[in-house]
């Protein structure tokens, strides 16, 4: 085994331990912590695998937003929910899992294995593939960063639907606050006092995050970064501010909030419809305006993503129903 593999081995081991811990740590708080750490390690692996876009997104989403989410859950849920699970089912399941793993490994190692069956062949064998075409067409896409080109031009339909995913999740979340009138036991500050200590940091950190987010958005068309990363960062900032009480409650009754939640998807969809009606077809940007269109879509999307994500993480009755 070469020394070059050492960091990879370390990361692998670390990841496995954390995964195990996140699942089976005796205390749930430990498990949550380990899960957040797992996100950080994954971000490292993304970086190691030359995926900076992903590392950024993972850092913002996996470590940041998920952490807040889990904290929320930790407070909301009683501890006794967690029980020992070393039951017969457990061992049975383990046995099954082992069998499945062995089967999988057996296939991995036989002649006709995954590794030999073209999965790891170089792309030279795999022609003409989507990837080759994507690389070749980046120039025509209106942006120079290939990932952004794929996201917002080649596979813009996916991205449009993805914005809808966010929206639908939020719609689902809204159903968890069914009452039309304000709940009596509604606590405006349900977050622990300790978080208030963060407020000092937050005052510093939040603008920084906003600026970084803006930068990422701007950078997205030519380098790693883009609407999602920017949106996640902005959402993190918003969450932070909200938690420390620096940001007032967002109110669903405000048309601006609703508009900013819907804006990304609505604009994107309008573009799609417009291109279908007046242009060359569904989501076929006019060549001249494609860069502009992508940027504007990104801006709207960032706004929507930021607001929606923050609502998803910390949205309460007053944010979603008032």
């Amino acid at each position: 085994m070469s020394a070059e593999l050492l960091p990879d081995m370390t990361l692998t081991l670390l990841l496995l331990i954390m995964a195990w811990g996140a699942l089976y740590a005796p205390q749930r708080s430990d498990a949550m912590a380990l899960f957040i750490a797992f996100g950080v390690v994954v971000a490292l692996i993304w970086a190691r695998l030359d995926a900076p876009d992903l590392a950024l997104a993972e850092a913002a989403i996996g470590a940041g937003l998920t952490g807040v989410l889990l904290m929320h859950a930790a407070r909301a849920l009683p501890d006794e929910l967690h029980r020992s699970n070393r039951t017969a089912t457990y061992w049975g399941a383990l046995a099954f899992a082992v069998v499945a793993s062995l089967m999988f490994l057996a296939h991995l190692l036989t002649d006709d294995s995954l590794l030999n069956a073209g999965l790891l062949d170089t792309d030279s064998d795999v022609t003409p593939s989507l990837r080759v075409l994507a690389d070749a067409n980046v120039a025509d896409s209106g942006v120079s960063h290939p990932v952004t080109a794929v996201l917002l031009n080649f596979r813009a339909w996916d991205t449009l639907l993805e914005l809808l995913v966010l929206l639908f999740a939020l719609s689902g979340l809204r159903q968890l606050f069914p009452r039309e009138s304000a709940p009596d036991d509604h606590a405006t500050s349900r977050w622990p006092e300790s978080l208030a200590l963060m407020s000092a940091w937050a005052r510093v950190l939040a603008p920084l995050l906003v600026v970084t987010g803006g930068y990422l958005l701007w950078r997205g068309s030519s380098a790693p970064g883009g609407a999602f990363q920017a949106g996640s960062l902005l959402a993190a900032a918003a969450v932070m501010l909200r938690l420390t009480g620096l940001l007032p409650a967002l109110r669903w009754s405000s048309v601006w909030l609703r508009l900013s939640v819907v804006a990304g998807a609505l604009f994107f969809l309008s573009v799609a419809a417009a291109t279908a009606i007046w242009g060359d077809g569904w989501l076929t940007y006019p060549a001249a305006a494609s860069g502009l269109l992508i940027v504007s879509i990104e801006i709207f999307a960032t706004l929507s993503i930021a607001i929606t994500l923050s609502l998803l993480v910390i949205g309460e009755w007053e944010d979603l129903r008032s």
């Binding site: 989507l130 690389d135 290939p146 794929v150 883009g226 999602f228």
Partner: peptide, 11 residues
Amino acid sequence: PVLHALVVTGL
């Protein structure tokens, strides 16, 4: 880049 884009979406 395609796979990266897919992962971003997945995330």
